[in-house]
Design a protein around this nucleic acid. Structure first.
Lengths: 203, 203
DNA sequence: GTGTTAAAGTAACATCGTTAACTTAACGGG
DNA sequence: CCCGTTAAGTTAACGATGTTACTTTAACAC
C-alpha cells in the first residue's frame, strides 16, 4: 500500500478553504465572472487541483449553497432552543432569517441562484435547504402544541418562509422601491406574517 | 446617401423575434447553457449578426427581463382598471401576480436572475420593474382613498409584492416542501397578505 | 453604372471549464 | 536502503464561448 498523505481533516480543511476563497470571489465579482483559474490563483494552486476536491465549478457552488443553508438552519435552531414561547420563537425566527440574509447578502444570493438548472439536480443543496425549512416547521409545531390548537404546521412554516424569503430576496437584489428605511419595512412584514400565521391555525 | 433598408418597425420585429427565440431556448436549457451561436442558428443568422440588435448576451437577457416586467405591469394594470373596489383590486392583483409567475415560470426565473451583477447596472430592467411595482402602489392608494383612511401605500404595496414574490420565487425554483397541493397554499398566502395590508393601514 | 452604407458573414482572439497525461513525493515491504 | 505504489499536484491541450475586427453583399441616391 501507499500513503494516505492527507488526513480526512486536512482534506476537509482544504475543501473549506476552497469554499471560502470561492465565496469571497463570487461575492466580489459574481459567480459567472470568477474563473476556476482565478480561485486557484488566489489559493496558489493550479486550476486543475481544485478538481480533486470538487467535481466541477457547479459542484463547488452547490457546496457553498449547502453550507449557507446549514448556517441558516443553525440560526433557526438556536432561536427555537432559546425562545421562551412558540410565538416568540416564530417572531425571533423570522427576524433571524431576515438578519441572516441581510448580513450575508452575497451568500444569500448564491443560495437562491436560479440559473442552476433545476434544484433537484443538486441533492446536496436540496437536502440542506429542506433541513433548514424543517426548523421552521418545528417552530410552527411548537406553537400549535403550546396553544393546544389544531392547525397545519407545514402551512404556517410556508407563510413564515415565503415572507422572509420574499423580503430578503428583494432586498439583497436591490429591488425594493423604499421611500423609507429598510428597517422600517421589517417590522410591518413581521407583524403581518405573525398575524397571518396565527390566523391560519384554524385551517 | 444610402439605404435605411430596414424600417424602424422591421428592426423592432427582428429584435422581438430574437428575444422570443432566446427566451424559448433559455427556458429550455437555462441562460448559461445557451450560446449566442445556438440562438443564431435557430434564427438562421450568424452569431455576430445578433450584435446589431443587442450589445451583448447580457443585454439580450436584460431586454427579455424588461419585457417580462412590462407584461406583469400590464396584468396588474388591467386588474386595477377592472376591479370593483380597492380591496378586490388588491386581492385580484395578488392573484394576478402569482398567476403570471406560475404560468411563465421560466420567464419569471429569468426576470429575477440574481447572478446579474447589481440590478442598477441594467437601467432598462430596473425601470421596467419599477413601473410594475408602481401599479401595486396605485392599487394601495386606491384602497386608502376608498376607505378614507390614512396609511402608507408604499408599505402596503411592499407587503403585497413581498408575499407574491416570495411564493412565486420559491414555487418556480421548486423550493416548497409541500405536503399538500400548491393551490392550497395560495389561498392562505392571499388571506394572510390581505390581513397584513389592511392592518398596516393605521401606520 | 457607381458610390455609399446598412446588414450580414467570416475569421480570429482570449478565455473558459474540463480532461488526459505526466511529475513529484511520501509511505510500506523486502 | 531501495523500490513499487499511489495521493497530490502540474502542464498541456481540447472544444466551446463571448466578442471584435475585417470583409462581403445588396439596395438605394445620383
Amino acid at each position: 500500500m501507499a500513503r494516505p498523505a492527507y488526513s480526512q481533516e486536512q482534506k476537509l480543511e482544504i475543501e473549506t478553504s476552497i469554499r471560502e476563497t470561492a465565496l469571497k470571489l463570487f461575492s466580489q465579482e459574481g459567480y459567472r465572472s470568477v474563473s476556476l483559474r482565478a480561485i486557484a490563483r488566489e489559493m496558489e494552486l493550479s486550476a486543475t487541483a481544485l478538481y480533486r476536491y470538487f467535481d466541477n465549478k457547479d459542484a463547488l457552488l452547490a457546496a457553498i449553497r449547502a453550507e449557507g443553508f446549514q448556517q441558516l438552519r443553525e440560526q433557526l435552531n438556536t432561536v427555537r432552543n432559546n425562545a421562551a414561547s412558540g410565538l416568540e420563537a416564530a417572531r425571533e425566527g423570522i427576524i433571524g432569517y431576515i438578519s441572516f440574509g441581510l448580513e450575508k447578502p452575497e451568500l444569500y444570493s448564491l443560495m437562491y441562484e436560479l440559473d442552476q438548472r433545476d434544484f433537484e439536480e443538486t441533492p446536496l443543496v436540496f437536502e440542506s435547504r429542506r433541513r433548514a425549512f424543517a426548523e421552521a416547521e418545528a417552530i410552527a409545531k411548537d406553537m400549535l402544541k403550546e396553544g393546544g390548537q389544531t392547525g397545519n404546521a407545514n402551512q404556517m412554516a410556508h407563510l413564515f418562509w415565503i415572507s422572509a424569503h420574499g423580503l430578503v430576496a428583494l432586498a439583497v437584489a436591490n429591488q425594493l422601491d423604499l421611500g423609507q428605511d429598510l428597517d422600517q419595512l421589517i417590522e410591518p412584514v413581521l407583524q403581518s406574517t405573525l398575524l397571518g400565521i396565527t390566523h391560519s391555525q384554524g385551517d
